[in-house]
Design a protein around this nucleic acid. Structure first.
Lengths: 141, 141
DNA sequence: GATTACTGTAATAATATCAATTACAGTTGA
DNA sequence: TCAACTGTAATTGATATTATTACAGTAATC
């Protein structure tokens, strides 16, 4: 799993929490605990996916332009980390003679595709708004 | 996700496919496409988890000592890769002032715990025996 | 129009993780 | 006693990840 997914979710939750829905890369970076350049990269993806709008220049920054209650973690996952469940390392080799060794990659692939669907299904049940609610609840406790 | 999980599953499927259920680390390594020492490490875990037995010395090696139809990928996952879904990199910081930044780690953690349960649930529906069947089917096609 | 405060993007450096390899002690069968 | 194994740790090499730097482009404001 990609840590950019975490950064994306965190950033969206932070923006959703802001009254005006806005923040600069520097503000977000301080909150997430990473470098502003990394935030700009991740939020560039979120912009392409339509979750935030950006304004360059003075007074600019990022603004959430989707309903926090309608954006799910599955949406963010698809935009940021699709396919990241399966390790890049592969066992076996389609060229080899043995039935097991030559077919394992394909079978493993289908297993992980299924796992990814399962995961997306779970993430589809959690919205950015709910994340913010959970945080507020935790803050109370 | 840990690639040792893949190696463990591949090794178990290979052993299940052998008439006598046995193979040496060298044979397994050749089939998996990795180094024998790595196989010994992974199968050492499977031994501790009770899925294989080992015999040292000449003529020794690994033998599957559980029913392929009863060992699920969830069992293997728990033995080899439990907790590996969540990235090690963390956003936010419990010490900080902001409600969002200070509670994000905990909330993200609970999200990934749920995801992991979901994943295990999916893996629980796939046995080593079924993996072998899938491979045989693919070989036919 | 100059200045200031931003984003976008790429390149580089630092660090961490992962896999391969080597080495060798211990075990067992022949 | 030799040969063929496992168990394990240390080292090296490769790869992936994150931080940092740099700078061009854009927009608001004075």
């Amino acid at each position: 799993m990609n840590s950019e997914f975490i950064i994306a979710v965190h950033s969206l939750v932070l923006l959703a929490h802001r009254p005006d829905g806005m923040a600069s890369s520097e503000e977000i970076a301080a909150n997430v605990c990473t470098h502003p350049a990394r935030i700009r990269k991740v939020l560039g993806c979120l912009r392409k996916a339509g979750f935030v709008s950006t304004r360059e220049g003075s007074g600019g920054g990022y603004r959430i332009c989707s309903e926090p209650s309608e954006v799910t973690l599955a949406d963010v996952y698809r935009a940021m980390a699709a396919g990241s469940l399966m390790p890049s390392w592969c066992s076996g080799n389609p060229e080899m003679d043995c039935m097991v060794g030559s077919n394992m990659q394909d079978v493993m692939n289908s297993v992980f595709c299924g796992a990814e669907r399962q995961l997306e299904n779970y993430f589809a049940g959690i919205t950015i708004g709910q994340m913010l609610t959970r945080i507020k609840e935790r803050q109370m406790a």
